[in-house]
Design a binder for these strands. Structure first.
Lengths: 191, 191
DNA sequence: TACACTAGAGAACGTTCGTTCTCAGCGCAA
DNA sequence: TTGCGCTGAGAACGAACGTTCTCTAGTGTA
């Protein structure tokens, strides 16, 4: 079918909305079917099981994150500004109505202990982000430990914003990042 | 009964072990009953429902956390050292075999969106921790923003350690905390 | 018109889970 | 001994869920 791909992404986006907003186990395949507007038969012929669907949803989320970070850093010139753009991206995300924390952290907390696939997906997503931060830090001439610290700030901001219900953590994390970067890099951007 | 209180804490500790290691929805009341070694009838007469039990388990977890932080900071003299003791406490925790991240973050990710009670418990736990950090920072003469930054580091270390499966995040967070404290406090501990 | 084929709607099935109910056994007062 | 209340073990119940099956309506084709 021509719309095979369209059907798949339609289902993935629908499932993502539901899983992210209500949790994975709390959302039945029937709800996914309703949200996507297709039949159960088609749903199961496109994705063999809920596990398979969930895996694709997590990969979709990962791409969304990567795209968001890339877009946010596009306007920044220096590696330092690209690093700080991460926290600006978080700030915008935290302010969205449907923000409910990091989907990978949530999924890991819900099913990481009983589903190796989910644990692996979360681990890969986080290590991919750490590699991204590391490459920017290296480009800026900073030590690897700075990358780990900046990544921890980003993770902490996400859980803090989710649980507290306020976006303040983004600004706090950004300020901390500025301090850490300035302390670690010999010459900051001060003209 | 004399052992009423003993029964309750026995059940709470058993449920805590199971909920923490496998997740909440993945653990049935039957498993709790087996782990606690009591009858279903007694389980339900002591706690009216799984929700009630979960609530008590979360409060128990909160006390455990408070006690752990208090014990870790007991040896420290200055507010600065008490702040850093937080990350030493995390370091020891991350190295335990059964470490699976912060129970409140996990519970929030799993059920926070559909259970206001759990969302509230997580929010209260985190804000209690932030008050603790804030009081130490104030005692040390630091600005409130430093407290927020240090708390974000602690949260980020917990999720990073859980998902990555290594305890390294504790040391990274501690190093970042040292940098942030030294930058925010006029006079550091340098004799 | 007759016929194969497809697809959608939802019934059905088997399992799991939270919670309640039943029943047999036991201690105990009279 | 007899009756009574309590307790534990687990059966039972109703709901929800993942997954499969059935039935029906429609469509294109000869």
């Amino acid at each position: 079918m021509i719309d095979d791909e369209a059907t798949r992404s339609n289902v993935i986006e629908a499932a993502d909305r539901l899983f992210y907003s209500r949790g994975i186990q709390a959302v039945g395949m029937d709800a996914v079917r309703n949200e996507a507007g297709i039949s159960l038969k088609k749903l199961y012929s496109a994705f063999g099981s809920k596990d398979v669907l969930l895996n694709e949803v997590l990969h979709y989320r990962g791409r969304q994150w990567d795209d968001g970070i890339a877009a946010a850093s596009a306007a920044a010139r220096t590696p330092r500004d690209k690093l700080l753009a991460i926290y600006d991206f978080l700030n915008g995300w935290f302010r969205q109505d449907d923000f409910r924390g990091c989907a990978f952290i949530n999924s890991f907390g819900e099913l990481g202990s009983i589903s190796p696939e989910i644990a692996k997906a979360a681990r890969e997503q986080k290590s991919s982000f750490q590699r991204y931060v590391s490459s920017l830090v290296a480009e800026a001439g900073g030590p690897p430990s700075l990358a780990a610290q900046l990544a921890i700030l980003a993770e902490g901001a996400q859980t803090t914003a989710a649980i507290s219900g306020t976006p303040d953590a983004a600004a706090h994390a950004r300020a901390a990042a500025v301090t850490l970067i300035d302390a670690a890099l010999p010459v900051s951007g001060a003209a």
